[in-house]
Design a protein around this nucleic acid. Sequence first.
RNA 1: GCCGAAGUGGCGGAAUAGGCAGACGCGCGCGACUCAAAAUCGCGUACCUACGGGUAUGUGGGUUCGAUUCCCACCUUCGGCACCA
Length: 818
Amino acid sequence: MIDPTSIPPYLPEEIEPKWQARWEADALYEPSPDPSKPKHYALTMFAYPSGDLHIGHWYAMTPPDTRARFMRMRGYNVFFPIGHDAFGLPAENAAIKHNIHPKAWTYANIQRMDKQLRMMGNSFDWRSELITADPEYYKWTQWWFLQFLKNGFAYQKLAPVDFCPSCNTTLAREQVIGDDRHCERCDTPVIRKDLKQWFFRTTAHAEELLDYSQLDWPEHVKTLQRKWIGKSEGANVIFHTEAGDPIEVFTTRPDTLWGVTFMVLSPEHPLVDKITTEGRKAEVDAYRAQAKNQSDMQREAADREKTGVFTGGYAVNPVSGEHIPIWIADYVLMSYGSGAIMAVPAHDQRDFEFARAFNLPIKVVIQPEGTPAPDPDEMTEAVQAYGAMINSGPLTGTPAEESFETASKYVEEHQIGKRAVNYRLHDWLVSRQRYWGAPIPIIYCEHCGAVPVPEDQLPVLLPDDVEWMPTGESPLKLHPSWRFTTCPACGAPAERETDTMDTFVCSAWYHLRYLSPHYDNGPFDPEKFAYWMPVDTYTGGIEHATMHLIYTRFFHKAARDCGIVTGDEPMLQLRNQGMVLGEDGEKMSKSRGNVIAPDDLVKRYGADTVRAYLIFFSRWQMGGPWSSTGIEGNSRWLRRVWYMFQEPAEQGATEQTLRALRCKAHQTLRSITSDFENFEFNTIVSSLMELLNEMARAKNAGAWASAEWNEAVRLYLLMMAPVTPHIAEELWERMGYAYSIHQQPWPEVDEEATVEDKITLVVQINGKLRDRISLNPGFSDEQARSAALSSPVIQEALEGKTIKRVIVVPGKLVNVVV
RNA sequence: GCCGAAGUGGCGGAAUAGGCAGACGCGCGCGACUCAAAAUCGCGUACCUACGGGUAUGUGGGUUCGAUUCCCACCUUCGGCACCA
């Protein structure tokens, strides 16, 4: 029985700030390169400073912190940095809404969030803290841009871009969402615009990005990326119009060339004007105009009604010589392949639907195995499977397995095209017509063109005195004294580039800046790079699978090709957390009113309890609904630990009790060690609770103050230290151990102690549990068998039955088959 | 439509080189302490049962001595992609 008056109460609000201050003063988590120790770079995705720390931030950062702490105790030199992804649209939107400067808004948020971040009790290295909106950071973002430009990984082109009329900016392809193609931030439907834009050549590394051989990443993320990169192999084939103009098409099915019955060009295809005949011009122009405004109409496109118009022009099929009509249709995209296709309605579902809609001929050239060739008039869908080639001139009769190869070879030999690979991945559009970002370091000169800002003139500072209200132009365009300058090459009057960079550029290399955030001879200190890189464990949300995680891999490969970094991959191991949902099981949102605020929880329970609950309530990778009663259990757990370890009790336990206690303690240590290694956080807390239950029994049986009890307490504190660092440190001190618990080595399992006195042998009949027999450890299969068969329960059950077989699982189980 | 993840008590979730299903916690019930309550501590808690057992891990099959775990088909939920030639 615990008398709560005899020992001080557990007051997290006192001990947590106390230890946090001490750890920081003692620089406990500020590692330096140390070649005598194995290094571990644990990186958690930095956050956008939106105002307040959300419970989701805790979920993203605290379980990785427990693991970083574990790795530290295991003897690794651990680097666990923190920073702020500070450029971006929300600051400007807030600025517009509340009439406050984006910079002021952002930095005020960062200050508030820093305070909240410290309350978590994470082992961040605060020296590494960086803010991507600081000139000393974006100077180097600009520097990277210039290196990429120099090495051909950055280029400028006039491009149709998706533009959000509400945010007044262009959007990357992945920021446009859904059938109606709306903006990911404000849900406004996007429109198309032609602008001169800067791109990073991500496609240059498309093939290499598909190689995951060096990475321990979740299958799921790799699959998403592979799909996003979208590699397809086939051939580019040149058709010619009757007038002799070449039209290139990409096809993955060169074996269907003889089945082409028409061609379709994208409405934006440059040849459309030339091909269109006088009589068709009005209709074609009308269709193109309507296609251009597609943002709204794309919804209709989703029900797959095929639309299009005939241009009046004809092309010649290069293998058969047949003359085929050329159409335009919006199902052919200018942005993929060459913007033109050869249509094979018999063997492509989209072409089939188009042919049916406009009564175009269908020609069957593939005969799938085991079925007769389909009748074009009777077909209800395209036959897309490979098969033997028929009606295909000289290649007729080619079997399915060889059709792709043979047809490709045919195309190359007859010089009508060649094998080609196409990717769905596009080059990365990095220009943004926005104020709150890193200015693109380019100056336009009438004589010299686009001139890079010389490196010694970086950073190109973002001016503070701007009109940030949206006008459709970059706010920097409205700042004459900033905009107009002189050409660094020839000295003539010139203009600055007024676009800023996509914030994904900032976040593509922050893990490098963390190494030395104030280093000014380069983007990072090469010595630090050599020791710490690559990132060993990267953790964050799955939502970054296709954007950030592709960009950062590309960035590293491009930087490698520029000779700036070594290694092929920036982050070796990736793990994703799930999402904390509201108590109603729905995504947390202000409008639903189901938001859980971590500050309130810390006030009420203390950070240790919040940490413990977040780790305990579900598998980290899975996430799940919050429970305000569930957290009570973790609060109780810590109070129980507090009193149980401090409150003396009667002594005089039996040998057996003490052995069992020691056994359980070491078994727990073994399982927790492997749980930490495998990111199985929830069972760490379960195991600790189980051990505590065992300790409560042992204490009741007189184990208090025995050597076994003291060892169990010591192990317990060490095991809970990564999860609940404050209470562990406090009790560690109260038990008389030397500061700091967080600098102790992780304890070793005594394997001998984990062997139990008695082992329960499970006896089944026909796979059904019938009896349990307690045996001494180390029994043989034969002993298990005879013990099972001689059990009275089993003998009774076996009466009148014949034993067919007896299966023995060594040390565990006997199954009698009758 | 395609791709991926997941379906286990009242709830969150344990357990998978195939071997005691439901660890741990919440909730609930009973008891102790208390004038009483809270807190705390102890015990119990899948379902059915003629008390011998029987049935249960989304549904239906299969492999196996034995399946939550492996295979096939289907259903549901969540996430991603969406005419990519």
